[in-house]
Design a protein around this nucleic acid. Structure first.
Lengths: 193, 193
DNA sequence: ACAGAATTAGGACAATCGTCCTAATTCTCA
DNA sequence: TGAGAATTAGGACGATTGTCCTAATTCTGT
């Protein structure tokens, strides 16, 4: 297999550090130490810190797309696919309690920094919104699809924020159960084959 | 009326800056410029930046307590009091779309910084949780009070995060309408006088 | 009015920030 | 194998960071 390029290593480590420490609090020196290269070497791969941020956001976009495509290809129905989305809260509960949601916390930080990449970060949310809306549309709720998708997204974000604040795993499980009941209560209006 | 002390001015401006730019991204110089004093003068009032953060959190605790007490004293029922809480999302929608929720974003940032004040910041959420639980208990839902309070808190946090990301006022109004329907659906099991 | 306390301004301090340059090394491929 | 490109390490750069000191000023109470 081909070895990971230095550039990919930088983006990978920066991604993790931006998530765990925040964009502003992560320095070039931190990333260099994580990758194991010298600080000066950075400039050859990325001109500015904002360039790294752009690459990190692009990476997250790609990986999010791949994840959503994966769920799409598993062959089950829209209800099961939405379940995959909800289950992220359980699967990633430990890191969520430590660092929150990677997307939500990045968007919030960039908003405060009034950063130019804010819109690009929000596009990751856009991927989830559109994918969820597609699943809900497949359930037959065509006109409400986007509204319900945003609602589900907001709910999961709220769970992430509160889980980070209170470090309460039982709360996460409680809310996930609530989301699942909500999902089950959505009527399937789609035409049977 | 007594003039505001320099110390109070510092805390007030730091509070606003921490909200609008984040704790990490706000420097002593920023606060000094906002207050209109010299940088060196800071040391007389606060030894470290963390001391300012502590004072800001204490200020937010006080003001939150005062706000909740105010709602409590307005003499209406628990349902109307919870309405006051929900209405914050509408009243502060402009600043929420710009900077998110002051409590949620601070807790998330401090979690990433692994900051010692994290627990103190979470206590502000605790004030809301306990107050909301008290209102829900007054509706007669005694055993579910804390769970429902956390759910409502999480819901509002989710709305704040998504509103900041998408800058969508219609979304806020939609979700607030949803929260109000949810509130209306809570049965009043309390004993009539 | 005056001594002592409180408050202030200005700047020094080492450390770190993001950025950028240069020279050495490694890689690529004709 | 050897020329040219790609990549690297190391450090310089000015600006800014949080922290801290000192000397001047303002305030306070008698």
């Amino acid at each position: 297999m081909p070895a990971q390029s230095t550039r990919e290593l930088i983006v990978e480590q920066a991604d993790a550090l931006f998530y765990e420490s925040g964009f502003e609090a992560t320095s070039f020196a931190d990333i260099a130490a994580a990758v194991g290269i010298s600080r000066g070497n950075f400039y050859h791969h990325f001109k500015t810190k904002d360039d790294i941020l752009d690459a990190v956001i692009a990476r997250r976009m790609e990986r999010t797309r791949a994840m959503l495509d994966g769920w799409q290809a598993e062959g089950e129905g829209p209800r099961e696919r939405i379940q995959s989305f909800i289950h992220m809260l359980i699967a990633n509960r430990s890191r969520i309690m430590d660092f929150g949601c990677p997307v939500g916390t990045l968007c919030s930080e960039l908003a405060k920094l009034d950063h130019a990449a804010q819109g690009r970060a929000t596009e990751i949310f856009g991927l989830f919104r559109d994918w969820l809306a597609e699943q809900i549309r497949a359930l037959g709720a065509v006109d409400q699809a986007e509204t319900l998708a945003l609602h589900l997204l907001a709910w999961s974000q709220g769970v992430a924020v509160m889980a980070t604040a209170f470090k309460d795993e039982a709360f996460i499980r409680n809310e996930v159960a609530g989301i699942e009941r909500w999902l089950a209560s959505l009527p399937d209006l789609s035409q049977p084959k």
